[in-house]
Design a protein around this nucleic acid. Sequence first.
RNA 1: GCCUGGGUAGUAUAGCCAGGUCUAGUAUCGGCGGCUGUCGCCCGCCGGACCCGGGUUCAAAUCCCGGCCCAGGCGCCA
Length: 463
Amino acid sequence: MGREGRVRKRLSQGPVRGLYSDDMAGNAESEAGFEQIRSGMVRPELDGRRVVLQGWIHEIRDLGSLVFIVLRDSSGLCQVVFSRVGADSALSAALDGLTRESAVRVWGTVRVAPQSRMGVEVKGERIEVVAKAVEKLPYDVTGKVPASMTTRLNHRILDLRKPVNTAIFMIADTVFDAIREYLRGQGFVEVRTPKIIATATEGGAALFKVDYFGKAAYLAQSPQLYKEELVTVFERVFEIGPFFRAEASHTRRHVSEFTSVDIEAAFMNYEGVMQVLEGMVAHVFKRVLEERQRELDLLGVSLRPPKTPFKRITYDEALKELAELGHPKSWGGDLETPDLRYLAKRHTGFYFITHFPTAIKPFYIQPDPNNPQVSESFDLMYQWLELASGGTRISDPALLRQRLQEQGLNPESFKHHVAVYDYGMPVHAGWGLGFERLIMVITRRTNIRDVILFPRDRFRLVP
RNA sequence: GCCUGGGUAGUAUAGCCAGGUCUAGUAUCGGCGGCUGUCGCCCGCCGGACCCGGGUUCAAAUCCCGGCCCAGGCGCCA
């Protein structure tokens, strides 16, 4: 379905009233002679229509007899012009008391306005302050003065009202939808796994401990074991959900609560799920380009759809390239951030690194039958940013028990999980993708906090 | 956990190295007044700040010590 078709389908599914063609239409009644419309939908073609708008005051430019206000809702901005000449006392009083970010309703007439940069405006007739905002705001939503990340996050709701920030999350909404659309199209079933768990999934990583009715419990760092078990029920599952890492990392790409897109598929190996992954990423880009051009423009992003299949290099080849680039590395260690930055000089877009040493991968990763020193594993990279990792999983119960032992994990902690392998566990594979990191790539943001509504990091628990 | 850098009005910054000329400059913001086409409106007047504690000194925003807070990076990872 192309853009037109999809938009038409969406419109036909929701309530539509007047020009307020959006699912929020029921929020306020239309009034006699006025059609409800959203700010971003005020266009020259609507010249002469009498409309009522609801939103927030983005800016006020008071010229004395003329008052320009820029009205904002999540669809965009619209200029409304009021004249004090001939205004009744109610309108004059309302105009005198306006503050930025107040919620208002405005009644007026759309008119083509060559004098205005937008080319169209609403000639205001009446304005009602629905909820007044205080005069002194913590910082400027119009962005005239920059704000530090700390200030922005301390006043996150105001910060999110900035069109550029709203745009990020409108794009994220499309990405969620595109991911679900693509995976369902591939036969995947959406599931939800527990976020409060009794034992660590993979051993080492730091978990948040919680008091669970007096017992020790942890916040889940991954749905790994549950999703593997679930392939014996649904064959193909996916989950989009929050996960938690208590790592004391302090970088622009780490937070302690993040959103993971996870899939797991029975009767597939790593090659199969890599194809699902690159197909999904390509589909996400396609949908964003079709539906979020306005938001991409606001962000100053010119997005190009990636070509599939993505480039694939093995771990061994990566080491060889590092040596050629003058940064040799001995076999067996994980690729570290500086290594990935060097590799990014050669690999500019999306690419896979495959066949990592088995020893540095979690216990559930399948060793390559032809060379057990390496595993059927992969990472999806964008330049030097790790977006996803996955691989073929071990399906043989004996091998799984052996790998648990080798990694120094307590088999007792995993007995419920290992038991499933005795009930017919097929070959299976999967991956986990950092949703916010994908949004960083699409929106070209360099700090993951920009793409999370209320980020949680080592030093931030509020708001 | 380790390394580096930083805290000046509501916001963002100048000043700090080379202490005094700082009753701390600028922009934005808020208040008041003016303006009929603004769109980072403009013009005038007014308002508001040196993170906390200790020390050095005739003199501290500036130098030293301690604390608290923040940013970035590393390891680890999505």
